[in-house]
């Protein structure tokens, strides 16, 4: 009985190590750097909006799921995705606009 439980425990540890070794290449979304701010200015998005959008993206969206890379969806897909989730994330319309603005600017800078 004890050896069976030890086997379960060992199996779980192996699964954990396996899980932690894959798919962890993209972590935090791009920070608001001078370069990103310049790209934002070209798209008529001010610095405060970029900061607000990123802060909301990294706090509200993780209440339900992990953060996708900004390059994971196209610039035409993002508005629909944000619209779908804005209500669930309790985003007001100005906050929804800020999140979308940040993502689109970051997306335009992604390789």
């Amino acid at each position: 009985m004890k050896s069976k439980r030890l086997a379960i425990f060992a199996g779980a540890i192996i699964c954990l190590v396996d899980l932690s070794s894959c798919g962890t290449t993209s972590f935090a979304p791009p920070p608001v750097t001078t370069e990103l701010a310049r790209a934002g200015a070209r798209q008529h998005v001010d610095l405060a909006t970029l900061h607000e959008g990123r802060a909301l993206f990294t706090s509200r969206c993780i209440e339900c799921h992990t953060l996708p890379a900004v390059s994971q969806h196209s610039a035409t897909e993002w508005p629909r995705l944000i619209d779908e989730m804005a209500g669930r994330a309790s985003l007001k319309s100005t906050q929804r606009d800020a999140v979308l603005a940040y993502i689109l600017v970051a997306h335009s800078q992604s390789p």
Binding site: S20, T24, T25, F27, I62, T66, L67
Partner: peptide
């Protein structure tokens, strides 16, 4: 800690 799609 969130590491991409992994939550620890």
């Amino acid at each position: 800690k969130n590491l991409g799609p992994l939550i620890l």
